[in-house]
Nucleic acid binder design. Structure first.
Lengths: 187, 187
DNA sequence: CCAGTTCTTGACCGTTCAGTCAAGAGGTTC
DNA sequence: GAACCTCTTGACTGAACGGTCAAGAACTGG
């Protein structure tokens, strides 16, 4: 599955054949169809699995932290380091997001991420550390920043997460703490 | 070509067959291969043609303007309205950018855009209206903003370019005028 | 050692696709 | 009206693909 994910990320979904995958793995084609019922199902499971892993990573990072702003920060750092460690996954999402067969599943995962983030921000609003406003909008903005930053830095070789994460955290924490009118309505 | 571009943008390159295209056009397959030597060449030409059109649009918009900051502003507005009018093209670039067969051509076009923008910014630095710094870096930042903003606003139905362009111009002009240390090194 | 299950093989099948080509329509020139 | 060129047709071809399956290897429990 890891090998297939890499191939899909590197060469695209349609361009990578089942024959390519099993040949690269040194196994027969039957093995593939013993474990997966179709090529489409394989990519679906890869995407779902990675989304689950990312979400668990975020949950672990947030752990027992109470302060909403620190929770947000921990989530952002966890997300960036996850993408840093699994660069293929980010590419895979880009590949799949332009294919009708996977947009639905991807959108569902995205919505979970938005509502997770929105919940943290809403907690901050309730606790008074974040000015009241549209938590969902702010969550979209944070995810938009993460997406863009990932594209730009992590997809080029040699990007380091360290300094990057500090800047992104500063930007996002500053963003959600700004007055609603100042928050850029990105997504 | 316009029809093919729309199909590629909507359904993807691999997923759209030559048979689909000629059938939708109501012509025989021979016509396709009379005008294009392959399916790959067709998309290549669509991309190149659109890039030429965008560049010409920017050149026309900049026209006889002298002030570098106004040139930058005019270029940004021209780019946004181009993407607004040709939303398919933006999607097409996203589709093609994840396909090995087109990344090289796309990257070349991107580099032209960067150097065009960098030249305007460098002129501003020489004229003293922009603090000296890395013009290429700033150009990448501007293109990064345009790319992200296009994704978020123009790909959703009902986005209006008017207010959007004002905000983007303000952001970018403010960005390049900031001290180098403050300019976000995006691309 | 046998019976049963799990896992693996690779030849094979039906389909789809990019690309070809013999045939010919329509127009223009002399 | 013959020779010629431009453009169009759609049946056809060879290759590649996703997926199947009969055959059998490897392991497990009794």
């Amino acid at each position: 599955m890891i090998y297939a994910a890499r191939r899909f990320a590197e060469d695209g979904y349609d361009t990578t054949s089942v024959a390519d995958i099993v040949e690269g793995l040194g196994v027969g084609k039957g093995v593939f169809y013993w474990y997966f019922s179709s090529k489409e199902e394989l990519l679906g499971e890869i995407l779902a699995e990675a989304q689950r892993r990312l979400r668990r990573r975020q949950a672990d990072a947030i752990g027992t932290i109470d302060d909403p702003l620190l929770r947000l920060e921990a989530g952002i750092r966890a997300t960036l380091s996850f993408f840093d460690e699994h660069r293929d996954f980010w590419r895979l999402v880009q590949v799949a997001s332009h294919d009708r067969r996977f947009t639905a599943g991807l959108r569902a995962g995205q919505e979970v991420a938005v509502s997770d983030t929105a919940r943290v921000i809403q907690d901050g609003m309730d606790a008074g550390v974040i000015p009241s406003g549209d938590a969902s909008l702010a969550a979209n903005a944070v995810l938009g920043v993460l997406n863009h930053v990932t594209r730009v830095y992590l997809q080029r070789d040699g990007g380091s997460v360290g300094d990057l994460a500090d800047q992104v955290v500063a930007f996002c924490v500053g963003g959600v703490q700004a007055q609603p009118a100042v928050v850029s309505p990105a997504s």
